[in-house]
Amino acid sequence: MNAQEVTDMFAGKNRAERTAEEAWEHLSSAWSTAGDNAGRAGRRGRRLAARAGGRVSSATDEALTRASAAADALAGRRPARPWGLIVAVGVIGAAAGWALASAARAALERQAENEEIELAETAVVVTPTYDDH
């Protein structure tokens, strides 16, 4: 290994360390912000519960959600699948498919009935006649 390879190896490590340190700083900041928002929400909630409670609570929830996602990402955990949304889309798709199939079946039945009526109206009835010759 030459001197340049050693320098490149340590430079890469420094970049990785810097990236991890920046991620840790962002995560620490997010947790701190979430905690500060929660503290402010508690104080403001006592004074302005009816007006500001919902907005502060949603900001706190968002900060905690983002901080948790950042912690999971740093730990190498993947985000969970939104199973509720997947099931809801599946149910809606099944209902739409059933509705379309029912409509198609009804349209085919109406078409068959109309064809029968048309055939009955245009049919020629031949009755045999008997001549006594």
Rank of each mutant, 00 (worst) to 15 (best):
A23F: 01
S29W: 11
S68M: 07
E25R: 15
A70W: 03
H133R: 12
G35A: 05
K13P: 01
N37A: 15
A120V: 03
T122A: 07
G76C: 06
R47I: 08
A38V: 03
A96L: 13
A73T: 08
K13L: 15
A96D: 05
A70M: 11
I117P: 00
A107R: 14
R15M: 03
A70Q: 12
T19G: 13
W83F: 10
E22L: 14
D36F: 03
R105T: 15
P79H: 02
G84Q: 02
G35D: 08
A94D: 02
V124M: 03
I117Q: 12
L48P: 00
E121I: 13
G39K: 01
S28F: 07
N2Q: 04
A96K: 03
M9N: 08
N14F: 04
L100A: 15
A101I: 04
G45A: 06
N114M: 10
G12D: 10
K13R: 15
G53R: 01
V89S: 09
A20E: 06
T60S: 07
P82I: 01
H26R: 15
E118A: 14
R47Y: 09
A41G: 14
G45R: 02
L27K: 02
E115I: 05
A69Q: 05
A16F: 11
G90M: 04
M9T: 14
T7N: 03
T65F: 09
A70S: 07
R66V: 08
A34I: 01
A30P: 06
A67R: 04
A38E: 03
Q4D: 09
E21G: 11
A88K: 11
G35K: 00
R55G: 05
G93Q: 00
A23C: 04
L119D: 12
K13W: 15
A101D: 06
L108V: 09
A106G: 05
Q111R: 15
S57V: 09
H133I: 04
E113M: 11
G53V: 00
A106S: 14
A95I: 14
R81M: 11
E115D: 13
A11P: 00
I86F: 11
A106N: 07
A75Y: 01
A123K: 14
L74Q: 14
W83I: 08
E118G: 04
A50I: 06
D72V: 01
S29K: 12
E21M: 13
E21S: 10
E115K: 13
R43V: 07
N37I: 12
A99D: 00
A20C: 00
A101T: 06
R78F: 06
A69V: 03
A16P: 02
A75F: 02
L108Y: 08
A23K: 12
G84I: 00
R46H: 11
A123D: 07
R105E: 12
D132C: 09
T65W: 05
A112M: 06
T122V: 02
T19D: 15
S28L: 08
L27Q: 13
